[in-house]
């Protein structure tokens, strides 16, 4: 079985983002970029499936500018077998990404598609669910446990009330949550090896997909600030402030 893992290049999770002075977006120039943390968990899970013998090939796919090749190479260094880049700049909206991924899925015929539940740039939390809808496949979203048992994919989902178990008919789309696994670091020899692994590039035009945006970003602003308040030095003082100053308890 093939596993398809769509991944995204985003601002490194440890970088504090800055809004551009002209309010057109956030500053991406000279900012450290990395693989979206949820995508790392998806890649890790796919590699573990291959190591366990459930999968025989792991393909990482990115939609984005040519620099997304670095992100794909990271996925290859972690252990993916080959990579596909759909080159497009800027990165399209989730619906267009889902359409591009559907085209790739129809060509590659994977048994399962595993992706991060959300990217930490747009925080949309849409692509996996949309892809499943377009393919008319089953969806396991926010997954913290995953096992493939013949034609059935068993998942545990992290939901607002706790955990939920769902059985999916394969092929399935899975979006992963934080606690599914802990992604490995790529070793230096594997980083070197990854440079020789195949990476194919396509364009939305080749796939016949219109990626024009439906949403217009009118402006991007800093959130309203929150100033630090005062320090207290005892329980008595804290309770007094909460009761009589803030009047909240």
């Amino acid at each position: 079985m093939k596993v398809l893992v769509p991944i995204k290049r985003v601002i490194d999770a440890n970088i504090k983002v800055r809004v551009k002075a002209d309010n057109s977006g956030v500053e991406l120039n000279n900012v450290k970029m990395a693989m979206n943390p949820f995508c790392e968990i998806a890649v890790e899970e796919a590699i573990r499936m291959r190591e366990a013998g459930t999968a025989d090939e792991v393909i990482v796919v990115a939609v984005g500018p040519s620099q997304s090749q670095e992100t794909l190479r990271t996925g290859l260094a972690m252990g993916a077998d080959r990579a596909i880049l759909i080159e497009t700049d800027p990165i399209p909206e989730p619906l267009a990404i889902a359409k591009l991924l559907k085209a790739v899925a129809e060509k590659e015929d994977p048994g399962i598609i595993i992706l991060g539940k959300q990217a930490i740039d747009g925080d949309n939390n849409q692509t996996g669910q949309m892809l499943a809808g377009l393919l008319n496949w089953s969806i396991g979203s926010f997954v913290s446990k995953l096992s493939v048992e013949g034609p059935t994919v068993k998942v545990t989902r992290e939901v607002d009330g706790g955990l939920e178990n769902i059985e999916l008919v394969a092929p399935a789309v899975i979006t992963v949550d934080l606690r599914l696994n802990e992604p490995r670091y790529a070793s230096l020899p594997n980083i070197m090896k990854a440079k020789k692994k195949p990476l194919d590039t396509h364009t939305p035009e080749e796939l016949g997909i219109d990626v024009s945006p439906r949403l217009e970003v009118l402006r991007v602003l800093e959130p309203p600030g929150r100033a630090a308040g005062i320090r207290v030095n005892s329980a008595d003082e804290l309770v007094e402030k909460l009761r009589n100053e803030a009047k909240v308890i």
């Binding site: 504090k16 809004v19 956030v26 740039d121 747009g122 925080d123 009118l218 402006r219 602003l221 959130p223």
Partner: peptide
């Protein structure tokens, strides 16, 4: 967006 570090209209 970006964990609430920016607000997009």
């Amino acid at each position: 967006i970006y964990a609430g570090n920016a607000m997009a209209t």
